Computed example of a mutant assay.
Amino acid sequence: MTCVFVQLRCHPGKTYDVAREVYLREIVSELYSTSGDFDLLAKIYIPEGEDVGVFINDRLLDIPGIARSLTTMTFKAMHVDGGR
């Protein structure tokens, strides 16, 4: 699985509606309300073999009330044994 973080900026007054719909779709492992440029932060595990962009576009970004998104891909920082 590939872990990605997706930040969502919502239209004014729509953050809780968007959060509710994200939760109902059962595609995130964690969902947080945040301060700053974005309103929500979602941690999503993309199934092996799935295209990340297509997955996010088809299963998340069609939710009404989302104005903008920023996806951050993750990579291992180090091996489990501590080596490189």
Rank of each mutant, 00 (worst) to 15 (best):
T2D: 00
T2E: 04
T2V: 06
C3V: 13
V4I: 14
V4D: 08
F5I: 11
F5P: 01
F5Y: 13
Q7F: 11
Q7V: 07
L8H: 10
L8C: 04
R9G: 11
R9K: 07
R9I: 05
C10F: 06
C10K: 02
H11F: 04
H11C: 00
P12E: 04
P12C: 09
P12H: 00
G13Q: 03
G13E: 15
G13R: 06
K14M: 12
K14C: 15
K14S: 15
K14E: 15
Y16E: 10
D17E: 12
D17A: 05
V18I: 07
V18S: 09
A19V: 01
A19L: 02
R20Y: 06
R20Q: 13
E21L: 11
V22T: 11
Y23T: 09
Y23I: 10
R25S: 15
R25Q: 15
I27L: 14
I27T: 06
V28T: 04
V28D: 03
S29C: 14
E30A: 08
E30V: 06
E30T: 13
L31H: 04
L31K: 04
L31Q: 10
L31Y: 13
Y32S: 04
Y32G: 02
Y32K: 08
S33I: 01
S33A: 03
S33R: 08
T34R: 01
T34Y: 01
G36S: 09
G36L: 10
D37C: 14
F38G: 06
F38M: 07
F38H: 12
D39K: 13
D39R: 07
D39L: 11
D39N: 12
L40T: 03
A42R: 03
K43Q: 12
K43I: 08
I44Q: 06
I44C: 07
I44M: 09
Y45H: 15
Y45N: 12
E48I: 08
G49C: 02
G49S: 04
D51R: 02
D51E: 04
D51C: 06
V52W: 00
V52F: 00
V52P: 00
V52S: 00
G53E: 13
F55S: 07
I56G: 05
I56K: 10
N57F: 14
D58W: 03
R59Y: 15
R59F: 12
L60M: 07
L61Q: 13
L61A: 10
D62L: 00
D62E: 07
I63R: 07
P64K: 14
P64I: 08
P64D: 15
G65K: 06
G65S: 09
I66K: 09
I66Q: 05
I66W: 00
I66T: 09
I66L: 02
A67Y: 06
A67V: 05
R68M: 09
R68L: 02
T72L: 15
T72W: 14
M73P: 03
M73H: 13
M73S: 01
M73F: 12
F75A: 15
K76I: 01
A77M: 12
M78S: 13
M78Y: 14
V80M: 11
V80W: 08
V80C: 08
D81P: 05
G82D: 12
G83R: 06
R84W: 01
